[in-house]
Amino acid sequence: MEALINIVLLTLLAVITVGIMFQRNLFAVVVLAGIYSFLMASVLIVLDAVDVAMTEASVGAGVSTVVLLGTLHLVRTIEYPSKRSALIPMLVAVATGAALVWGTIGLSPFGTADNAIHKHVAPKYLADSVKETLVPNVVTSTLADYRGYDTLGETTVIFTAGIGVLLLLKGRRRRGHIADEDSKVGRTA
């Protein structure tokens, strides 16, 4: 049953991706990207990663739809066909995909309990985390205590990215009036 759900959802993901590639109306591409995110969240749910699915749905379907629409406000909604040949990007993409598939050959079977990753430190965390950290949730204690420096680094990266975006937006607002007038003239109804 689970395999069947995965097959259907992954096939739909591939179909949506091909549809996005051939779609020239960028408004429709935004809608299709939202659909892609919801399907991907469903795949992650079937794979038992409910928290990742939640992130995918909120970031992919919620926030990036809004951000992409904000981008569409600045550009036109029809994509012009590229003059250059798509052969080299296609070759690069196929080669990268083939390398990734080749990389999965050496992995241990999917979902088995005696994989190396489940033998390393996970049993110790499960057994001792409540005693050592007094946090009832093992995921929280792992992220915020055992891997605290790791999480600190991630937060620093996100903070830096946020500051960068704020600086870019601030520079734009300073000469914002001219840009507003331009977009009003240039936008098609």
């Binding site: 939202g34 909120s58 379907a61 739809t65 809004v66």
Partner: peptide
Amino acid sequence: ITYGLLNLISTLAI
């Protein structure tokens, strides 16, 4: 429930 809220937000935004 969260999915329902997100769905509403993206549809409203579009």
